[in-house]
Write a protein that binds this DNA or RNA. Structure first.
Lengths: 223, 223
DNA sequence: GTCTATAAAGTGATAGAC
DNA sequence: GTCTATCACTTTATAGAC
């Protein structure tokens, strides 16, 4: 495996930045080496010189965004779980730990929020999932970790249901990344709140009859 | 616009059938004219002779599956709405009218259920949504029609919330088509039921405190 | 209808000069 | 590090023979 970092500046960085933009806009299948080098006003051979191959550059772009995103997701979940102490964490807070890094990492990405979401959405919905095993593994690990917390938060939901519901939630989120509401129609924060409420209700389905949703403990959650 | 039908048999049909299979498996960006003609054991020029161009064939594949799907969705919604008479239709039945045609049309498609779902999922998540205006319009029309029924079924949910929730539901469904649970893990019918319950709970969120979900009327719904 | 041959453009990658 | 030139393919599409 090659270097998994990108310099802060210089020609390699420029290629990388231009590549991200194009990938976010057109998708991984539709961006050629020439598209990238032309947009960067650099030589055709530059991609192969700096990244070994087209695939090397594309993998690096994925790695660069997905790994920090996954780390923040795990870190936030850790915090939420610790706060819940013995009791299971509040469902809304688990979902928040799942979605908020998508907003937070956008700010650290150097890309516009729009572009970052497009890019991440395209990565997560890649058709032929032949991306690097390291990324695949990391994604799986995060999903497993969240599934475990959800099981604790929703002990009465049988695992087949819970897995399916987590799946539905994930799909809704990817679709949201790829097809965001127009910015003037809705703030990101409002959309996030709507998503969390929607997903929480879906995940919780069927558990409220015996113990109706208590407003008390959940009131500490700020939306 | 060209003919929007395909003969029951013959070389044109063979090309069409092979094309659907490849498109379902690899996606629209990654299937070439040569892929198709080679798999069909026909000449390279056959696609252009029978369908005018690669794009003509691809558009026809979309048209062939999306239009009947949309029609069945509208027809089922009509039935549900009529049954509801003056009252608004049951939420679960509206969602059922939205998702069940995906199972039903699979049987009429000539494709395996798997392939049909892959194909439709890929069509609905096409990156550069440059597909024919007729299809785009039809999809929009169906979405609008369902939105109207949902508004009637959930009068207390403000429209920004409802639109967002419908969006989330759509995303979850597309993701489900593209990433189906393994067939031995779960029957289609069970997955459908799970999806409907998840989506209904999400759409209904916040409406249950004053008027707790009545089991009576919903009990007529069969899952 | 079916085929060959070919056009015209695009693809990723690399050798080798500077 | 940067560039040109080029290789070896692949792409869609079409003209024209059969």
């Amino acid at each position: 495996m090659r270097e998994m970092t990108v310099p802060e500046s210089g020609p390699k960085r420029k290629l990388f930045d231009v590549a991200q933009q194009l990938l976010a806009a057109k998708g991984f299948e539709l961006v050629s080496v020439r598209d990238i080098t032309q947009a960067a006003e650099m030589n055709v051979a530059a991609v192969n010189y700096h990244f070994g191959s087209r695939d090397g550059l594309l993998s690096l772009v994925m790695y660069h965004h997905i790994m920090p995103l996954n780390e923040e997701r795990l870190a936030r979940l850790e915090t939420v779980d610790r706060k819940g102490a013995g009791k299971s964490a509040a469902l809304e807070e688990i979902i928040d730990a799942w979605v908020r890094p998508l907003v937070n990492q956008a700010r650290h990405s150097g890309l516009s929020e729009q572009s970052f979401h497009q890019l991440v959405g395209k990565i997560f919905s890649l058709q032929n999932k032949d991306f690097p095993a390291a990324i695949q593994d990391s994604i799986q690990q995060v999903a497993d970790r969240f599934t475990r917390s959800l099981v604790k938060a929703l002990p009465t939901v049988v695992s087949e249901d819970l897995n399916a519901r987590f799946h539905f939630m994930t799909g809704g989120l990817i679709h949201l990344l790829l097809n965001p509401p127009s910015q003037q129609a809705s703030t990101i924060e409002a959309t996030l709140g709507r998503f969390i409420r929607f997903a929480a209700a879906g995940l919780r389905e069927g558990t409220e009859t015996e113990a109706p949703a208590k407003k008390g403990p959940q009131a500490t959650f700020d939306f």
